[in-house]
């Protein structure tokens, strides 16, 4: 990934849903998952820093590079479900 501005976004689990839709994953034309929708009222929306179009590079320090779509979605879902943390740290890239 060329020079991008990346940001570390902390999403606090302040509602019972995360509420994001992602597209892509390894072996697709969108090799890293990109946020395509953010659901109002979900924790992602409430945090206010995640935006449609951002590409998710890491989740809690776990790189999504090379992860197929289902696996990437599972990693994000597990990060939201786990009781070990009250937040999720997303490393996102802002394209363009």
């Amino acid at each position: 990934i060329s020079a991008l501005n990346t940001a570390l976004v902390r999403v606090v689990k302040n509602s019972n849903t995360l509420g994001i839709a992602i597209e892509g994953g390894a072996n697709t034309r969108q090799p890293l998952p990109r946020i395509v929708t953010i659901q109002k009222g979900g924790s992602a929306h409430n945090c206010g820093q995640l935006k449609v179009g951002q590409v998710i590079l890491e989740v809690n320090g776990i790189s999504l590079r090379g992860q197929e779509h289902e696996e990437a979605a599972r990693i994000i879902a597990e990060a939201f479900k786990t009781k070990e943390k009250d937040h999720i740290d997303f490393l996102v890239a802002e394209l363009g």
């Binding site: 995360l18 509420g19 597209e23 994953g25 994000i76």
Partner: peptide, 14 residues
Amino acid sequence: LFVEPQWVPVSWVY
């Protein structure tokens, strides 16, 4: 010419 599939999977993560 190897062409990447154009479809892209989309999933909701609730």
